[in-house]
Design a protein around this nucleic acid. Structure first.
Lengths: 223, 223
DNA sequence: CTCATATGGATAGCAGCACTGTCTGTTATC
DNA sequence: GATAACAGACAGTGCTGCTATCCATATGAG
């Protein structure tokens, strides 16, 4: 029970440079240590863990520092009781941090595409609001594909939806397996952010496999 | 057949600012226009299309300018004959541009995780080389999850793999539907990059649906 | 008790990225 | 012939994510 180390040791254990830790403290991504005097503080295992989480979200998840700050602020502000309500809020925040698709440009075309997305949702009997931020994001992707002459991309998206149904079951299972509320909150963050990265990588491997199956077992890694 | 417009018109049609077009020309992401005199050039529809593609990869796909340059250089260097070989090379380049997961940190732990990934590949009877870049990327994700105390994340990944099998079939179908070689090359790029974005968005929607099915039809969009 | 070392906090600086603006010397265009 | 647009070179800008420097205090070995 060594309940507290100083910043140099925290840096050593987390692999994050001291000035960077100070920066994260300033940005509010890392809670301040326990004060022992006006210019001394002690940090514990929770700080080490938090630093690892921050680095994971930035390095592996590709989130910006600002996005990480938002996500962690939501995690920290979630109460121990009312887990479900807060979980919804967290998922919203995480998803907003992760969906980084910008301004729709053409308003009318975008609206039309959003209608297509809503249709797709209806086709699959999904129950999610037409005001979900991902609707706009997906519509923007469709508009972009269309502008590039790839209207058939919509059919691919339709078929992706089935696969994502499977993924969502896994995701919800993953969160449900958590024991404590804190664990649950972190599972949402990790499941969403690391999950995205894991899926991208798996998709590459599965494509490689499928390509090998169709066109002969060539290994498509590059120069 | 107005076969060529000047840069101002190209800017208007593509929505990209003139200085930015000049910048892309300098970076080699956009082929130079057809010269009519030492300081005049004409651009055509292919330039408009290329600019749209560049913006799509940057804005929607989240690629860096350097990554876009690499991808497009590979597209441009692919010959009209030998489509399959070049397609493999393109997929490698695109995947490298899209997989942005960095240095593995601990070498031994990373190697162990890569072995787990190879096991997972074997479990599913996938035929893709253990040297595929996505193996390292996925291993890094697993190491990260483990360092955060989420070793059970591996089970989620195992289940993701099944969904990605479906996705890969869609992806290969998508590329196979292309008529010309150029179209095929572009389908790889668009399918991979826009596909990633589309899948992220669909995953959010599917999670929202699954969450609603399990815990009541709450709409989890946020404040 | 002394003094090198570490610390917290504030401020400033820096490197990389993706543009953006300015300038020069043509070249169209009216 | 006046005016506007152009290509190309180069400098500058705003933002992000750290680093580096300072200073006054605090700690800890001798």
């Amino acid at each position: 029970m060594g309940s507290g180390v100083r910043i140099a040791e925290l840096s050593r254990r987390s692999g994050v440079a001291v000035p960077t830790i100070k920066y994260y403290l300033r940005e509010g991504m890392l809670p301040p240590g326990e004060r022992t005097s006006p210019n001394q503080a002690l940090y514990d295992e929770t700080h080490v863990h938090r630093l690892r989480l921050v680095r994971a979200l930035i390095d592996v998840g590709g989130l910006s520092v600002a996005a990480v700050r938002d996500v962690l602020a939501t995690v920290d502000s979630s109460s121990e009781d009312m887990p479900t309500r807060d979980l919804d809020r967290l998922m919203g925040t995480v998803q907003k941090a992760v969906l980084s698709i910008p301004d729709p440009a053409d308003e009318a075309v975008q609206a039309e595409a959003e209608r297509e997305v809503v249709d797709l949702i209806a086709e699959r009997d999904w129950i999610c609001g037409a005001d979900h931020p991902a609707v706009g994001a997906l519509a923007t992707v469709l508009v972009t594909a269309q502008a590039l002459g790839h209207s058939r991309f919509l059919d691919a998206v339709r078929r992706y939806a089935e696969a994502m149904e499977l993924v969502a079951v896994v995701d919800l299972d993953y969160v449900a397996q958590a024991n404590t509320v804190d664990d649950m909150l972190e599972s949402v963050v990790i499941g969403t952010v690391l999950g995205d990265s894991a899926m991208m990588a798996l998709r590459r491997l599965a494509e490689s496999n499928e390509s090998g199956k169709r066109y002969g077992r060539r290994k498509p890694d590059s120069a």
